Simulated assay, not measured.
Amino acid sequence: MGTNGSWDTITGALHRVSGPGKRGGDWMTFLCPVHEADGRRHHPSLGVVYNRQRQRTIVKCFAGCSDEEVLERLGLQVRDLFDGPPPDRSGPRRAGPSPELALADRALLAAGLPLSVHKPDPGPQLGRSRRVAAYIYRFADGTPAGRVIRGRTLHRRGHVKSFWQQRRTESGWEAGGFAPLPFQLPEVIAAVRAGRDIYICEGESDVLTATRAGLTATCNAGGAQGWRREHADWLDGAHRVRIVADRDAPGYRHAAKVAATLRDRVGEIRIVQARDGKDLTDHCNAGHDISDLEPVPVLDDHFRSGRAAPA
């Protein structure tokens, strides 16, 4: 692979930033420069492989970090993934943003929220990262499939969260992603069968907040960018789904994506948000009831019937 320019560029940058990689079949694994750059020992969760047919290097963080985040930490750009020119997106194939993304942007503007999130510089790291939670994802029969580990690292201007995934094997827990299953899957299946409301949140901590309030709730591993149609398959036939959107751009876009995969599958879709704060946990910590969740402008009206209305 050394003769491929993109491979040399990507792996060379990762070697400088994250240290030496480990070979395993076609893939080489590195510590992810986004969420594993805390100086602690980790099972590397960033995979790199070369696709000869497409003449490009593929980068995949199995904990859910986006390619753009990884490249930014390496000081590279998307074009550095390609040996030839990137795919031509000009002409008739230029379709613009997806309908769900455009709808979410309209909702953000209606709510007076910015269209992007700029995270402040946390400053230098002051301590070692420590694990603060582990969330087990289970198959339909209740056996463990994988888990999401949540870490926390002290910096000069606050704490920084990090997440990584592990999958369950016959020999124990191993680094890497697992099947796209909803969190609390056995409880979700029971709620669909019983016709109970199901709440979809953006993260596991909010799901547990909802559970303590006596609700059936779920989410996907990988945060706002991790929802897939395979997750939606498990909610097929649900009576009513309430999507609790985080009050920011990724949260609104995640809610729109979830709703788009559930249209025509469930009886009713509602998209709501915290009355105070960013998420469901903030909402409850502020002393509000679940019934006090507020509809998200534009998105709730668009998806309320469970079938997309004309844009």
Rank of each mutant, 00 (worst) to 15 (best):
G127I: 08
L108S: 08
L103S: 09
L101W: 09
D141K: 03
V70K: 11
V70S: 11
R94Q: 15
S129P: 10
Q125L: 03
A63E: 01
P97D: 15
A102Q: 13
D105G: 04
R150D: 08
R131K: 14
P86Q: 09
D67S: 07
I136L: 12
Q125Y: 02
P87W: 04
R93D: 11
G123I: 06
H155I: 09
L154S: 11
P87T: 10
A134Q: 14
S129D: 13
D121Q: 08
K119R: 12
G96Q: 09
L108T: 11
R56A: 03
D105M: 07
R152H: 12
D105T: 06
P92K: 12
R156G: 06
V148G: 02
E68D: 15
R152Y: 07
G142Q: 01
P86C: 05
K119Q: 10
G64V: 02
R152F: 04
D83F: 06
R138S: 03
Y137P: 00
A104Y: 00
E100V: 01
L113M: 12
V59L: 12
R128Q: 15
P85Y: 11
R147I: 05
P120D: 07
R152L: 13
Q77G: 08
A104M: 00
D121C: 07
R130Y: 11
A111S: 10
G96N: 11
V148K: 10
R138W: 01
A145Q: 02
D121A: 03
L76R: 10
R94C: 05
E68P: 00
